[in-house]
Write a protein that binds this DNA or RNA. Sequence first.
DNA 1: TATTGATTGACAGTATACTGACAATATGGC
DNA 2: GCCATATTGTCAGTATACTGTCAATCAATA
Lengths: 177, 177
Amino acid sequence: MQRRTSSPMPSKPASITMDAVYAAPGYLFRRMQQIAVALFIEECKAFELTPVQYAALIAIHTHPGIDATRLSAVIAFDRSTLGSVIERMEAKKLIERRPSPEDKRVKLLYLTKAGAAILRNIMPSVEKAQARMLQPLKPADRKVLLALLTQLVDLNNEASRVPLRAENALEHLGKSG
Amino acid sequence: MQRRTSSPMPSKPASITMDAVYAAPGYLFRRMQQIAVALFIEECKAFELTPVQYAALIAIHTHPGIDATRLSAVIAFDRSTLGSVIERMEAKKLIERRPSPEDKRVKLLYLTKAGAAILRNIMPSVEKAQARMLQPLKPADRKVLLALLTQLVDLNNEASRVPLRAENALEHLGKSG
DNA sequence: TATTGATTGACAGTATACTGACAATATGGC
DNA sequence: GCCATATTGTCAGTATACTGTCAATCAATA
């Protein structure tokens, strides 16, 4: 029964079909990411906010005075890309960047009034988008999927370039608070 | 018990936490997409092929002489972006673009020898990557997740800009075959 | 204190992803 | 054949996402 020997037999010439794509989890995750973004943009188009900008807004609201490096850890978002995201949000006057008095390298991030207002108002639309993407499943299945997905993301955390470092990444902040 | 009235009461000031991000399916799909790509690139780095390029390679192998528009439907990939993907694959001599004798607008896509060879050799690495991203789950849970994910992508097909139009998108091709 | 090493934000380069527009071409109705 | 319409590939513009590099700065130490 041993089939792992590297025998000269091509062990079935594979006969490649599109199922090698359609059944691959990586393909399915890419599709769901596309769908999730499309639904988010559609539901939130009045606010002209992207999913990543929304996550950043929440994180800055939760951690006022966070810097870009820590923000990237808190939303598991690449630091290089985050620079331009912050730039766009600053241009839209949703956030402010202020130099840290303690460290001349860092720039601390704060919500503006407009940013806080958008955050308050956008929540229902965001929740509608999140609900819509699971809508086609039966309620019980939604719970199962969400639970497994949460598990999987958590257990695969270190596999991505920017592992999530939630709140504990900020432990040494706020010592002046 | 009615809570939907737009009463002056803020109906709990929401007290926004990072859970509004971490528990959202959209966020989890983004994370899994990041992780899936990272694992794919890592396992397949010897081949210098991205997940999308792999999907295109399979599709062109399965449908030789397909054109870019139909290819985009078969792998559910935006047509505009696909242009540059094709360009890069052509530069790497993995595929060839030949003008159609029947329609001066279209350019038909074919695998080169090198493209076919890469496809044959990369499959084990791709499968290893796909296995790795589900590895942390119990085998039974993997099956459940994959089944729900497949369902969800299928049922949400129309929500993305480029709905999948698998094989049936090609019905009117091959009439000269 | 001078040097070493780490951190921070910025940048250049590549690769998806999407919107919207365009010229060239094809197709249908007339 | 002519014209309105649709299709095809391409492009410009925006927004993630990643790799790698860099100068400025900070922290630790010899």
